[in-house]
Amino acid sequence: MPALVINGTLRSFDCDERTSLLDLLRNHAGLTGTKKGCDHGQCGACTVIVEGRRINSCLSLAVMHDGDEVTTIEGLGTATDLSPLQRAFVSHDAYQCGYCTPGQICSATAMIEEARMGWPSAVTDDVETSPELSDNEIRERMSGNLCRCAAYPNIVAAIRETAA
């Protein structure tokens, strides 16, 4: 019977131990903004923010998150009150079909915070330094989110504008 704080509301669930956090969000909590792509941690469509960190919700058991705070795309903004990153995705046309978009936006929201904390990446020349979010840095840090429509140039532009 895990209880999680989802988008600010404490909710408890009666679910099988095998239930992934992704399936709990979609099938038990009714929050279908989080998408199931590969269900194996390879595509990033299921990315949500748990305790301030972006993770693949498909590769985590719901029971492991008893007591945790989870933010999904529904918690970042609404149709009438978009988050800055959601607005930038709209204005830059950073999608085609839109299926990967909730994962892209949850991932980028947390990624911008990681960069603000000074975390280096695999393309940072000197890992002792805290680099600016160049396009190259954004691409590397977002490599866990695939876009089958290949809207990458506009995704990078939307993130760059929001992070600036």
Partner: peptide, 18 residues
């Protein structure tokens, strides 16, 4: 630094967080 670089070369940001 070799350890930091190796970790950052592995997986994705989401996976490294878990």
């Amino acid at each position: 630094a070799v350890l930091s670089k190796a970790l950052l070369a592995g997986a994705s940001g989401q996976l490294r967080n878990k």
